[in-house]
């Protein structure tokens, strides 16, 4: 069952991701993985989509993972782990295994929002008992900062470079968390490593729910975001406090905001420390800042309405 989360207690547990991985200095991804694994009290088997996390944690015969871990391809982390989960169910039925094992898939935003979306959608629809975790660093960082469908409007990337022709990416980012919620799966959540307790509680909650679960976790990338190496946690906190990355969960269709910032900060607080948004602070791009703020305000309003209307309705499915 769920235990009380204190860092003192957690620090007694073995961290199931070892040192010596080759992720960049100050990367957000290993911290996300570390927190997810620390929150899990069950034996865990993971699959990994191609991406920074995969290539850097498992280089030529050396692995940083202390759990059974499988990499297949870019597009099929969800399909791969759903196969492993099916085999586990079969072995359990045959009486060859009796342990309670949990299944998890890690993918970056490229491997989740874009390339792996159909295999993820399929696995969720088939109802496998698994948790999919997307660590969202908002572009294809591994291959050199190409734009993905998770890249925010106006961000400078190598395939949508900001200059005299375009002001960075000129397309909206898609809301994957809502797409996953539309699968009507039992649990969908959005989390941030800066709010570690919230993140770990969501993972623990997910493990107690049978069926497909999805979590979207923001994971700052100082190389791609053009920021400092020491601000991964600071930026993920700013993303939450500006409501760029609201923390909420959708359990059986009921939305609940898990963290409401005391004072909603303006989006420029999140954009300013990042070089990928530097061009937005010039006179001709002022409209983009305005647009970004409006988009966030609209989405935050919608989210609040969604969570409060359900409370008033009073019909909570148990």
């Amino acid at each position: 069952m769920r235990k009380l989360l204190t860092l003192k207690e957690l620090s007694k547990k073995e961290i199931l991701l070892s040192s010596g991985h080759r992720l960049c200095s100050g990367c957000g991804a290993p911290t996300v993985v570390k927190m997810v694994l620390l929150a899990s009290d069950y034996p865990v088997i993971a699959s990994n989509a191609t991406g920074c996390l995969e290539v850097s944690s498992c280089i030529s015969d050396y692995t940083a993972w202390k759990i059974p871990w499988i990499h297949n391809a870019f597009e099929n982390a969800a399909a791969t782990i759903s196969g492993v989960e099916t085999m586990y169910r079969s072995l359990k039925k045959q009486g060859k295994i009796d342990k309670e094992i949990k299944f998890i898939a890690f993918g970056g935003d490229g491997g989740t929002y874009d390339i792996g979306l159909q295999s993820l959608s399929g696995a969720m629809e088939r109802g496998h008992d698994m948790l999919y975790i997307c660590y969202d660093n908002e572009a294809y960082m591994n291959t050199g900062i190409q734009r993905s469908s998770a890249t925010p409007y106006g961000a400078d990337t190598t395939t949508r470079p900001a200059g005299s022709v375009i002001p960075g990416k000129t397309e909206q980012r898609k809301n994957l968390t809502r797409i996953m919620a539309a699968h009507n799966i039992p649990y969908v959540a959005q989390a941030s490593p800066s709010h570690w307790m919230d993140l770990m509680k969501k993972v623990q909650k997910a493990w107690e729910i049978k069926g497909p679960k999805f979590m979207n976790i923001i994971s700052p990338c100082n190389r791609g975001w053009r920021s400092r190496t020491d601000d991964a946690i600071l930026l993920s906190r700013l993303a939450v406090e500006t409501c760029h990355w609201p923390l909420y969960e959708i359990e059986n269709g009921v939305t609940r905001i898990t963290f409401k910032p005391k004072e909603k900060k303006p989006i420029v607080d999140f954009l300013k420390p990042q070089g990928r948004f530097k061009h937005l602070f010039s006179f001709e791009n002022e409209w983009i800042l305005k647009k970004l703020q409006e988009d966030i305000d609209r989405e935050w309003k919608r989210l609040q309405k969604e969570s409060s209307s359900e409370k008033e309705g009073g019909s909570s499915p148990s």
Binding site: S18, S19, G20, H21, R22, S57, C58, I59, D61, Y62, T63, A64, W65, K66, I67
Partner: peptide
């Protein structure tokens, strides 16, 4: 498992 510790960063 975890033999990446042999690589010092």
């Amino acid at each position: 498992a975890g033999n990446a510790v042999q690589f010092k960063t």
